[in-house]
Nucleic acid binder design. Structure first.
Length: 691
DNA sequence: GAGCACTGC
């Protein structure tokens, strides 16, 4: 039986570092013998993970500190092992639960099944997980629970102090997603009311100190000096080595003019000069990737035996699933796989067998302008942290190499240490309503890890006020505000669903809500726009895209949810299956909120009124003096156009509302619907009283 | 007449 530290035993060797944070320096090595032969059982495999040596130290730190920050490189085993250590040490006894959050749904599922397997239990019993629309836990049975950080925020609406959890581990906190930042702010508040709660924050090296400073609450510190019982409020920091191999970094000597071209030449040079091993190239988006893939494919064909060993795959999230899966196919003997990818391969997907990484130094990043209320995507230089993460992808199986298509001088002087956190680059309407729903009134004074721009928060409050979700005192209204907060969708969509109740078209509106929450229901059609357009016209409704979605959904159901039907009509089969699934969940939520499920039987006017009740702020009028289909927003008189993918493109009805805007050379409205302007004053008199 | 990095409730 392996040994581990138990409360009351001697403490392991710990050294205080100069900044007051506690750093564990050397752990007593596990005495478990590691045999190089035979079948390694699960216990042996666990004991070989780097984290295993730190088990006593981690348990000691968690017992004695309210917050422990674990700096663990990839492959340390922290995510799967730490919850098990905690359970073994008794943190799940007496009906308590150990939680571990992840930023992504897939990671939650993968880690939960791995831990269930290691413990030899069925998933959903002792070990379970919860993600949106999927709860695989059993109350009073589940002891270790994995969940997305967004779900943890939702749970606080039911149980503000998260009383069932004894330890909450926030994994991948350095990624700094909006939800992670919000969760950390909320957990810090909970900690003040629940001193017995323990937090474990897993972070990257560069963020560890600022995380520790964040959790070192001044008020809390004074209190601990008067009451000596309980854990130290001072966060502990523990570093755990990973299992990555060394990656040698190469820089270009002179800045490159065209990183796509440079990436292609670098791949060809690697192929000519370097031993076997697959190549991963980081570019910015579908366009770049398409160009690089065709250049490399041409080269591989033209160059006879020299580059013919290359098999080139594109990889980005918009790629159909079957094509995405091709990148995981084993590389045939004597061949070399080249994967040209977006950021999806930086964190979301792990590719085995990569030995060479080519890093363009750029990615597409979201920026939000609170004045125009528009989010757009911009190609921008990545951070040093991102560059390191990309390079690390080359060292998973053996020592690798990373070719950076920028100079060392650029890396040192021009690239920022860490990226701008998402919370400072996004529209915060959804985020603000969640914080409000938790009863936190002072949004600007919320203990943010990084404060969003005040303009962004004010804009979010304005939007919520105009939806009737917040009152004059910026408090949630009853019942609308609380209901909108309870629906796990964007507030404008939630408002649309609530309004459909009075209008008697909830069945139709729930379908529209499900489809709007998907990326696209059409197959991506690089180069086949014409066929796609023709297919779309078979479903097109004069009222616009929302009603068109209803036609497609109807057709899909009538076909018996057939994949052939989808293929024939350029409809994305996986998206439609997802729509059916989400719709089912939304039906359940609607019933819980007391919404009567009712169909309006083809009365598209009430459907459009319900959509207008959520999206009235996006109303636009055709500028009759312009002959190129230019619209102006009612709210801000901004120039916008109907996107060519809309069924209303070139139809140009006088009054429309849109779901979202994309900014390219123009501002394009996506998902557009005709309205009668009188509806605007009907559904939002407070907003349009002066028009 | 043309576009969508990646997530999440």
């Amino acid at each position: 039986m392996a040994q581990f530290w138990k409360p009351g035993a001697d403490k392991p060797r710990i050294l205080e570092d100069e900044d007051g944070g506690v750093v564990f320096v050397s752990a007593a090595l596990s005495s478990a013998p590691t045999s190089g032969f035979g079948y390694a059982n699960i216990d042996k495999q666990r004991q070989r993970l780097p984290i295993y040596k730190y088990r006593n130290a981690i348990l000691y730190l968690v017992e004695t500190h309210a917050t422990t920050i674990i700096v663990g490189e990839t492959g340390s085993g922290k995510t799967t092992q730490i919850p098990q250590f905690l359970k073994e040490a008794g943190w799940a006894e007496g009906g308590r639960v150990i939680a571990c959050t992840q930023p992504r749904r897939l990671a939650v599922q993968a880690v939960a099944s791995r831990v269930a397997e290691e413990l030899g239990v069925r998933l959903g019993e002792d070990v379970g997980y919860t993600i949106r629309f999927e709860d695989l836990t059993t109350s009073d049975v589940t002891k270790i629970k994995f969940l997305t950080d967004g779900v943890l925020i939702r749970e606080m609406m039911e149980d503000p102090l998260l009383t069932k959890y004894s330890v909450i581990m926030v994994d991948e906190a350095h990624e700094r997603s909006i939800s992670t930042d919000v969760v950390l702010g909320l957990l810090k508040k909970i900690q003040r009311r629940r001193p017995e709660l323990r937090l474990i924050i897993s972070s990257a090296t560069i963020e560890a100190k600022s995380m520790a400073a964040f959790f070192l609450d001044r008020k809390g510190r004074q209190r601990v000096e008067t009451h000596e019982s309980g854990p130290s409020k001072e966060p502990a920091i523990l570093s755990v080595e990973g299992r990555g191999f060394n990656v040698r970094i190469h820089y270009v000597v002179e800045a490159v003019a065209d990183y796509v071209q440079a990436a292609v030449s670098t791949v060809l040079a690697i192929n000519d000069q370097e031993p076997a091993g697959d190549i991963l190239v980081f570019l910015t988006g579908e366009d770049d990737i398409g160009v690089a893939v065709s250049l490399l494919t041409e080269e591989a064909q033209a160059n006879g035996n020299k580059s013919s060993g290359l098999i080139v795959f594109p990889l980005y999230s918009g790629l159909p699933r079957a094509e995405q899966d091709l990148v995981f196919s084993p590389t045939p003997r004597g061949k070399r796989k080249v994967i040209i990818s977006t950021n999806i391969a930086e964190t979301s997907l792990t590719l085995e067998g990569i030995v060479y990484v080519v890093d363009s130094g750029f990615s597409k990043q979201r920026f939000y302008n609170p004045i125009s209320d528009i989010e757009n995507l911009v190609v921008a230089p990545i951070s040093k942290a991102s560059a390191r993460q990309r390079a690390g992808r080359a060292g998973r199986v053996r020592p690798g190499k990373c070719y950076r298509l920028y100079t060392e001088e650029h890396f040192i002087n021009e690239m920022s240490a860490e990226g701008i956190p998402e919370i400072q680059r996004s529209n915060l309407v959804s985020c603000v309503i969640q914080i409000k729903a938790l009863g936190i009134d002072n949004i600007l004074g919320f203990g943010w890890l990084a404060s969003p721009a005040p303009e962004t928060m004010i804009r979010a409050l304005e939007v919520l006020y105009s939806l009737g979700v917040l009152d004059d005192d910026a408090k949630l209204t009853s019942p609308v505000g609380f209901q909108v907060a309870e629906i796990p969708l964007e507030p404008m969509i939630s408002k649309m669903i609530l309004s459909s109740n009075q209008l008697g078209c909830s069945e139709e509106i729930i379908t529209i809500a499900a489809i709007l929450s998907l990326q696209s229901i059409w197959v991506s059609s690089r180069g086949a726009y014409k066929e796609l357009d023709e297919a779309k016209m078979r479903f097109a409704a004069a009222e616009g895209d929302h009603v068109t979605f209803l036609n497609v959904y109807q057709g899909f159901l009538e076909s018996g949810k057939s994949s052939q039907w989808c293929h024939k009509n350029f409809v994305n089969y996986h998206a439609m299956k997802k729509a059916v699934e989400i719709r089912e969940q939304l039906r359940r939520i609607a019933l819980r909120l007391g919404i009567t499920l009712k169909s309006c039987e083809r009365d598209t006017e009430v459907v459009r009124k319900a959509v207008t009740a959520g999206f009235f702020a996006n109303a636009c009028r055709l500028d009759v003096y312009s002959h190129n289909g230019m619209y102006k927003t009612i709210r801000g008189s901004q120039e916008v156009h109907i996107h060519p993918s809309s069924v209303l493109f070139r139809v140009n009805p006088k009054w429309v509302i849109y779901h979202s805007i994309v900014l390219t050379d123009r501002q394009y409205m996506r998902n557009v619907m005709t309205i009668d302007p009188s509806w605007l004053t009907d559904v939002a008199p407070h907003f349009y009283q002066h028009q």
